[in-house]
Nucleic acid binder design. Structure first.
Length: 960
RNA sequence: GCCGGCGUGGCGGAAUUGGUAGACGCGCGCGAUUCAAAAUCGCGUUUCUUCGGAAGUAUGGGUUCGAUUCCCAUCGCCGGUACCA
């Protein structure tokens, strides 16, 4: 193959510099206690989410965030910071084990091969990582501390009074029994319905179910004894302490949403002699509770069910048990059966029927609700379905009534058929506007006539039909009823969270074994001595799921039998365990005494949040980022860490989508039409919007574009899309871009620069190979400023870099310093690259470039395209690496203009641009503007009413 | 449904205390160079236009001398989440 000549020899110098940096440990960052550590420098800890080293290798999505942090890291380094910028491997995980099951290759072997490939790929992109700090979650030296941290959790409980974790030894000292202590540990055994995957032979966290189902695995509900972590105790703190962090608001919202805090009340109902507690966010609607619903799994269901209903209830419960939460969610049709029991509404003594229905979940609140069909859409639907009474107790607010024109649509059910009625009550609306105390009339009006709304009215309003709450606004009614409940021992204020405890055990081989022992006689569990850590998996050849919910390790009899009396726990930890704390270990990766030493912790961490800047995908917004925060807080509570939060600042890069494809069409009649002129009928047929002429669609790849279709010709005009929507990159769509290919064709600098130039970092954006060529051309232009081609095709000095000065170029260069700095500081790298492009265009036009300015420019370029910057710098006689030089200082005086352009508007429309001295007075500016020819043509015959002068910017003349 | 985000040329996107809309790049057109092509360089490129201008940042209003930017409403797209009581 005749290799096309490269526009600049990146293929030669990029590997050269990579080796140079590696051999000289250019990016090594000494920490406290290390040789060469300079404690006087400020520090900056910038972190990428470490990858799972999959067999597929690096995806173009990886270098997006990694380049961003690399640029910021290099910039900080050049500004005198000790920059900690490490990389490592989140190397436990299911794919390696699934692969082992299939092929018999030990996961350790697969993992090592994959890690080596990832490391090579990252090094070929020129990232300035300190590879001496590389960590791997599967490394026994790392596993040791993951297990150690687990033991901290195991040996702690959450003190509600102080809202923090404390050692269980404090409880022992108080004389608590082992059993009592086990009930409060942060790591505890719990038997509950879990997501069991028969195809993988393991349980999954709620958060993981969808991901694996999408990958084709099966997941069912099944009760099992599992290790859980008591993250729910931290729910409030996880919300509160999120607030001051410098995270994108959207990510904070995602976490808050996930934790799902609701304020309300618990109300106790008497059901056939049993107290049943319900949680409600609307205790003010208690008078409107017309029935009660229990989750089918509610423990009291068998006890309260009447003999008449026993059979239907049992059938229904059994049917629900076979369905997963997911299936229940998908089934929107309301189902349920009556238990035959009734509950007594504590507020008015009314007897209401008790039903069971799968729209009530056992996992949230108490698994029981009071149903207020008039004001809750789900209860409403259920009541309609089963003909239960609906009683309105909240009168809609004024706004709602007004917006509905004084009409309130209601629906009455008679003989099982629905009939729509509309009642008007203009007099009520008028009254509502005039008087505060219209509620009485409303109440009187509704008492007899309104039994059913057309829909539930779930918003706030005024209490009606509500005894002592009558006439109160919802907010006040809530307060009053909560007070009443408390006084009467019928309930209290309650804050409820959606967050569930974290299911922490997995039935896998390739994970950290739990460092726990079980007493074979008593069944009591205990931790292994710390001195025995790390506790590694035994060597095994067969990892197949056995169907035994205790996991594959159960087959290793030698390993599980710790002693005559004690047996090992056979579960392993989920992949999250290692990633929960890895950011700490980078600070002190080889410490054998501590997971992180207090010295390194103090130096590299911040009190407000340990890591200065964390960058990684928002798909981890509610999993990894929440789990890490939880572990960090526990370690902080127990005195092992000073900071309360792991990540002070966090940023999530957008997704890189697949490339879009383009074509325009020529119809049989010879007309050229674009995709926009076409309407898609189905996946194969287009219709011309204008004429209705049908075309058969053919999705084309770039090479096919010029081939003829059946009914039309495709012409290569990339301006019109065929694959008009950006889609996620995926194997099945065949739109995956391999970074290795891009590096091969355009070089690492081009890939880095392109990913930063694509658009705002946090936005999803489609890949475009033409765009890579664009930045590649820019880099080639920079190269040709310094080098020319000789007759033999070799590169020689261009002679354009000269001694001397050039005021215009100095100004341009310093403007570029400013713009690049601003771009890096605000993470808007695309604008910084634009600035450098403009600067290099100015250099090209000038022909000759003063050496000092060009060297300055190289410094600006170096965080983005470090190889090219080093190569040119060295060629120009630079003895010091650009990476190790200091960032250029901005000379503001060069930016000052003596003459500026003023914009002159007449009635807000641009009419003239005039050059004036920069320090022109307002009066002079006004006079000059009014005198301008282009202005007078628009002001002639009009009276100038007003003139606005914005110094240095514009003059706006208002005339009519 | 609820929560969050986003709507600017043929395309990716600039314009962050309200002040020149379309920087930079892609694509496209024309020209230079070349036997020719590639590469490179130069010029042009929002739309309409009676060549004077006019319109224009999803749509409709509002505030302002002036709005892509602020406010209200509507429409559309994307992400998260969902019988969470």
């Amino acid at each position: 193959m005749s290799e096309k000549r490269k526009p600049y020899p990146f293929d030669l110098f990029e590997p050269k510099w990579q080796s140079h940096w590696a051999e000289n440990k250019t990016y090594r960052t000494p920490g406290p206690g290390d040789e060469g550590f300079d404690a006087t420098k400020p520090k900056y800890y910038i972190l990428d989410m470490f990858p799972y080293p999959s067999g597929a290798g690096l995806h173009v999505g990886h270098p997006e965030g990694y380049t961003a942090t690399d640029i910021v890291g290099r910039y900080k380094r050049m500004n005198g910071f000790n920059v900690l910028h490490p990389m490592g491997w989140d190397a436990f995980g299911l794919p390696a084990e699934q692969y082992a099951i299939k092929t018999g290759t030990h996961p350790r072997i697969t993992t090592e091969a994959n890690t080596n490939n990832f490391r090579r790929q990252l090094q070929e992109l020129g990232f300035g990582y300190d590879w001496d700090r590389e960590i791997n979650t599967t490394d026994p030296k790392y596993v040791r501390w993951t297990q150690w941290i687990f033991l901290q959790l195991y040996n702690s409980y959450f003190c509600d009074e102080d809202q923090k974790a404390k050692p269980v030894s404090e409880l022992e000292a108080k004389g608590w029994t082992q059993q009592q202590i086990d009930e409060v540990r942060l790591a505890f055994i719990h038997e509950a319905p879990v997501n069991w995957s028969p195809s993988m032979g393991t349980v999954l966290a709620n958060e993981e179910v969808q991901e694996w189902k999408d990958k084709g695995e099966t997941v069912v509900r099944r009760p099992l004894r599992q290790w859980m972590l008591r993250i729910t105790k931290y729910a409030q703190r996880l919300i509160d302490e999120l607030e001051p962090l410098d995270w994108p608001e959207s990510i904070k919202a995602l976490q808050r949403n996930w934790i799902g805090r609701s304020e309300g009340a618990e109300v106790i109902f008497d059901v056939e002699g049993h107290d049943i507690t319900v949680f409600t966010t609307r205790p003010d609607t208690l008078f409107g509770a017309t029935y009660m619903v229990l989750a089918p799994e509610h423990p009291l269901v068998p006890e309260i069910t009447t003999t008449d209903q026993k059979e239907v209830v049992e059938t229904y419960v059994a049917a629900c048990a076979s369905k997963s939460d997911m299936e229940r969610g998908l089934d929107k049709e309301k189902t349920g059966v009556a238990t035959g029991a009734s509950a007594i509404n504590p507020v008015n003594g009314e007897k209401i029927p008790v039903w069971i229905a799968d729209y009530v979940m056992m996992g949230y609140g108490s698994g029981a609700i009071m149903a207020v069909p008039a004001h809750d859409s789900r209860d409403f639907e259920f009541a309609i379905e089963f003909g239960l009474p609906i009683k309105a107790v909240v009168f809609p607010d004024h706004k709602w009534l007004k917006e509905n024109g004084g009409h309130l649509e209601v629906e009455v059910i008679e003989d099982g058929t629905n009939r729509e009625l509309t009642w008007t009550f203009p007099e009520l609306v008028v009254q509502a506007e005039r008087e505060e105390s219209f509620q009485k009339q409303a109440s009187a009006f509704y008492q007899d006539q309104v039994s059913n709304f057309a829909t539930a009215y779930p918003d706030h309003g005024t209490a009606i039909n509500s005894g002592f709450l009558e006439g109160l606004k919802t907010k006040d009614a809530k307060k009053k009823i909560i007070h009443w409940l408390g006084e009467n021992g019928k309930g209290e204020k309650k804050i409820q969270f959606k967050l569930r405890d974290w299911l922490f055990s997995r039935q896998r081989y390739w994970g950290e074994p739990f460092p726990l022992l079980w007493d074979k006689e008593t069944g009591q569990h205990s931790g292994v001595p710390e001195s025995e850590l790390p506790l590694l998996q035994p060597e095994m050849e067969d990892f197949k799921p056995t169907g035994d919910p205790r996991g594959p390790l159960i087959n290793c009899t030698d390993w599980i039998n710790y002693s005559d009396k004690l047996q090992r726990e056979t579960n392993t930890m989920p992949q999250w365990a290692g990633s929960c704390w890895y950011y700490l270990r980078y600070c002190d990766p080889n410490n054998t005494e501590h997971f992180i030493s207090p010295d390194t912790e103090s130096y590299w961490g911040n009190d407000e949040g340990f890591v200065d800047f964390y960058v990684g995908g928002k798909e981890h917004a509610v999993l990894h980022l929440l789990y890490s925060r939880f572990w960090h807080k526990v370690l902080n509570d127990l005195g092992h860490l000073k900071s309360k939060e792991p990540f002070k600042k966090y940023f999530a890069p957008g997704l890189i989508m697949g490339e879009m494809e383009f074509a325009i069409f020529e119809t049989q009649s010879g007309e050229i039409v674009s995709y926009k002129d076409l309407e898609e009928q189905d996946s194969r047929t287009f219709v011309m919007k204008r004429t209705g002429e049908a075309l058969i669609k053919k999705v084309v790849g770039p090479e096919e574009v010029e081939k003829k279709g059946e009914n039309f010709v495709l012409i290569s005009d990339p301006s019109i899309r065929v694959r008009s929507k950006a889609e996620k990159m995926s194997k099945s769509l065949g739109n995956v871009v391999n970074p290795d290919d891009v590096v091969e064709r355009y070089g690492a600098d081009s890939l880095r620069l392109y990913e930063m130039f694509m658009g705002p970092l946090d936005q999803d954006k489609p890949w475009a190979m033409k765009g890579v060529e664009g930045v590649h051309r820019f880099l080639a232009k920079v190269w040709r400023l310094a080098f020319s081609e000789d007759a033999d095709g070799g590169w020689i000095s261009s002679g354009k870099i000269v001694a001397g000065e050039n005021a215009d170029l100095a100004k341009t260069t310093h403007q570029t310093i400013k713009r690049v700095e601003e771009a890096i500081n605000s993470l808007r790298f695309n604008t910084g690259i634009s600035a450098m492009m403009e600067c290099s265009n100015a250099y090209t036009s000038a022909g000759e470039i003063p050496r000092d300015l060009f060297l300055t420019f190289l410094k600006l370029l170096s965080p983005f395209a470090p190889h090219l910057a080093e190569e040119i710098n060295a060629a120009l006689g630079g003895t010091e690496l650009v990476s190790e030089q200091t960032w250029p200082e901005l000379d503001e005086s060069l930016l000052v203009e003596s003459e500026i352009q003023l914009i002159v508007q007449v009635n807000g429309k641009l009419r003239a641009r005039i050059m004036v001295p920069a320090d022109i007075s307002k009066e002079d500016a006004e006079a000059q503007a009014l005198a301008d020819e282009n202005v007078t043509t628009h002001t002639d015959g009009k009276t100038v009413r007003k003139v606005i002068v914005v110094p240095g910017k514009l003059v706006n003349i208002v005339a009519n």
